[in-house]
């Protein structure tokens, strides 16, 4: 029913439908359906192994889903149906690359390019992928780095930056592509505790500015405070979802309660 209706006004910015993914005989995602509206911040929580990261990586096809579909702005990602409910035809590598830049992806381990300065880490995408002139790309990079409070560190290479600074460069790098939405894969998990806040601050500001975001995290205070909606995943399915007050305040499912109790101990 969904494949037929194209980008009508009621269509959400992101629609995930019946998404499945396995690795070998391990079924990691067992049918995920999520709609994310423009400007919404959705936080995904769950124990490790529940499929959160795989879900995020399927969205921009860092992993190829086994079944199901993803629409961004009414356009299917990674391929197209030959007809409504018809066969799935995968996109070419080039077409997929064009689609990926509409998702800004922030990795747990930053994955900055070590041979480039902070400025060039951010500028390389706009220059090589979006086709901006070099000077324009650099100017854009400087604006984005200033936005994440790194104006004084533009000429440093990643190894000269702290983890929190590196992650903020990574956020700036993603933003410089002017993505339709941002995906955060445990962005603070690899950071020393004292560096977590500076990254969360940037994310909080980004959410407030109206960026559509999907965030996988273990930072429950961030979820409570910033999320419009929290999704709790367990065993490759969505076990429960709702606004943070409801999900944290009066969880309906046993699994959710158990998980939250476990988290509270840390």
């Amino acid at each position: 029913m969904v494949s037929a209706e194209k980008a009508s006004s009621a269509f959400p910015l992101l629609r995930i439908e019946a998404l499945e993914k396995g690795f070998g005989d391990q079924h990691v995602l067992r049918g995920i359906d999520i709609d994310v509206g423009a400007g919404e911040t959705v936080v995904v929580i769950g124990a490790s192994g529940s499929g959160k990261t795989t879900l995020l990586r399927c969205l921009n096809h860092l992993e190829t889903p086994d079944a199901g579909a993803i629409w961004l702005d009414g356009e299917t990602i990674g391929g197209a149906f030959t007809a409504p409910r018809g066969a799935w035809r995968p996109a070419s590598q080039g077409a997929l690359a064009d689609q990926r830049r509409h998702f800004g992806f922030v990795f747990q381990r930053f994955n900055l390019f070590p041979h480039l300065t902070a400025r060039d880490n951010v500028a390389i995408g706009p220059e090589k992928v979006r086709g901006l002139a070099k000077a324009e790309a650099r100017a854009l990079a400087e604006r984005e780095l200033t936005r994440v409070q790194l104006a004084d560190h533009m000429d440093k290479r990643p190894v000269q930056l702290s983890g929190g600074q590196q992650q903020r460069v990574a956020i700036a790098r993603a933003l410089a592509m002017e993505p339709r939405m941002m995906l955060f894969d445990e962005p603070t998990s690899a950071l020393d505790p004292e560096l977590v806040q500076e990254v969360l601050d940037v994310m909080r500001a980004l959410s407030a500015s109206g960026m559509t975001m999907m965030v996988v995290t273990h930072e429950m205070s961030f979820a409570r405070e910033v999320a419009d909606r929290v999704i709790f995943m367990a065993g490759g399915v969505i076990a429960e979802e709702g606004p943070p007050e409801a999900l944290f305040g009066s969880p309906q499912e046993d699994a959710t309660r158990k998980f939250l109790r476990h988290i509270a101990r840390f």
Binding site: N60, L62, Q93, G94, A97, D98, R100, R101, F103, G104, F105, F107, R109, N111, L112, F113, I124, G125, K128, V129, R130, A170, R173, A174, M177
Partner: peptide, 21 residues
């Protein structure tokens, strides 16, 4: 590291660009 290719992919680079840049 594989994360380098993934990061380059995530900003929309094509395979040739990832190799060269």
């Amino acid at each position: 590291e594989k994360g380098q290719t993934e990061a380059a992919r995530s900003i929309g680079m094509k395979n040739g660009q990832i190799l060269v840049y």
